[in-house]
Write a protein that binds this DNA or RNA. Sequence first.
DNA 1: TGAAATGCTGAAAACGTTCCCGGTAAGGTT
DNA 2: AACCTTACCGGGAACGTTTTCAGCATTTCA
Lengths: 339, 339
Amino acid sequence: MTIKDVAAYCGVSVSTVSRVLNDHPDVKDDVRARVLAAVRECGYVPNNSARALVSSRSTAIGVVSRGLDNPFLSSLIRVVSRRIHELGYTMVLHQIPTQADEVQAAALLQREKKLLGVIFLGGRFNYTEAELRQLTVPFVCCTYTNTFGDLSQDAYSSVSIHDQREAHKAVDHLVAHGHRRIAVLLDDPADSSIGQLRFQGYRQALEEHGIDYDPALTVVTAGYAMQAAYEGVCRLIDSGAAFTAILAISDTLAIAAIKALTDRGRSVPADCSVIAIDGLDISAYTVPTLTTLCQPAEEMASQSVQMLIGLIEGTGSHRHLLMETALRQGGSVARPAAT
Amino acid sequence: MTIKDVAAYCGVSVSTVSRVLNDHPDVKDDVRARVLAAVRECGYVPNNSARALVSSRSTAIGVVSRGLDNPFLSSLIRVVSRRIHELGYTMVLHQIPTQADEVQAAALLQREKKLLGVIFLGGRFNYTEAELRQLTVPFVCCTYTNTFGDLSQDAYSSVSIHDQREAHKAVDHLVAHGHRRIAVLLDDPADSSIGQLRFQGYRQALEEHGIDYDPALTVVTAGYAMQAAYEGVCRLIDSGAAFTAILAISDTLAIAAIKALTDRGRSVPADCSVIAIDGLDISAYTVPTLTTLCQPAEEMASQSVQMLIGLIEGTGSHRHLLMETALRQGGSVARPAAT
DNA sequence: TGAAATGCTGAAAACGTTCCCGGTAAGGTT
DNA sequence: AACCTTACCGGGAACGTTTTCAGCATTTCA
């Protein structure tokens, strides 16, 4: 069942059928109707390969993400995938190992060749302009923006929260509750620039509140691994360092932290408050409910896709969207005990 | 940069380059080496579309899943995607709304046409042979097997756990701890046959242990929504029904249940034990740690892909893999209070 | 009414592969 | 020495589209 069959079926030429299928003008209404009917009756579906071949333009959008282990990324992928399909494109998902970088992504582009654009999801993003020039298609970064490297702002698009500011807000929230000795739990800087940004926000907030930064209260884990966070917090407790609150740079880390605190006999929030950034669904069902700054995941993913497609279709230029988080008050933050 | 350029570059014909690229014999070793070198030097990558067009055979494998909201599905997708790429194929992910059915999947197949096979992930699967005959490519069901419909066992493959038996085991575990009044928390039967199977296992286990089934202890939620589970368990508690344990048919439901119990002032496991089936990573960090029967997600996903590709490549026939779960002892199960 | 413009359609080239088929050269057999 | 096989290679058709171009029919304008 090819376009030729359809053409023969309703006595027109292949060109005409093609025109109808591609919404070209230049075709009389009655002919168009006849063709459409024929298409339906024959159950014809165009061959994507042929289409892509001749127009040297596929419908494929690359989505590269480092792992999907983080539930927050999963939720992004979910709506990214949905939106891409809704808008008539195809998603090509590519996971890269944690330590790999854009060379992989470029290689992917080369291989698939026909990618129309790329969405980068999560992870670090400190590439230089030279490195990224390998990408000849537009790309948008979801959840992070470039703050290192020398990449020009009009070379790409991004959708993210202001990580520093949001971490700052989280600290503010703790300070407002009377906390002064606030530990921070972040992942390996090598893995993600996001953790670093949030860490900077933490430092800044401390400074503004006149609190000295105590390196002993900084716990760095490897990756987003909850086990590492759990162990890190256990070590922190065992070290005897005094702290009344923890800022976790992601919900998963916070959940592991709560577990560690509980296992060590500290009650949350009575003995220690915990606040996080991300806003996973599941965090609303932990015991106690996690207080967290919710990223508008749905919105961010949706916007990323829309921006990329705007770029692909020529409408719209590179932009950098900064989203606001929403504080979801849980039960994990309280005033410190009046010791 | 086409195959023609490569051919010209090293002074052979297009056919020869093609032969080299496709590992055909009939080409002298030195020529092969020269071509390979040329390919590398030119940075040539074959055009997938052209390749798919002429061989009328793409590299696309469809993965249809109803939503990715369930973290267990996310973890499956993650490794499915990875394996598919590792084996040189391309994943086409398609999420269907919860209420949609295989008609969608079939439509997808029609559209993309060139799918080599399909992996169904999660959800219900009670289609008849007639319905599924629309699928002209092999498919494998991951996480569930057909127990309804009249579909012949050699018409498809599956990788799953024995849901009834595992639920049975979960109940056994509770009974071994002295529980007799066991509530069950399951999702909407319309959404998933898995819940139904596990429910059957629950019923069977009760019977074998000489426990009367009490419909009042059955909580049905809509979808995997944690909110529905939370509310359901709250209602159960408020109804005054007596129970000392809950079997949740998934980890997420269990987490919501624990939350509900805690919020209603019941301590887990002192006042009520909770056991679940799935084995999410995060369940190891809840308070208390969830006791759950872990499905070998990695293995299941990996096997699904391998089986499908076996089917596609002609080696191997339809099989039905039944995996074993592993009990991960948490802190959510204890002997009931001796009231 | 004739010429020019316009609207619509069809023929055919092109996209980059794969693969069949025919051809040449080398080696083996009679 | 003539023939046959074998191993290897190149030519060219085909895959199913899109798109350019030319052509015909119809309208519009002078």
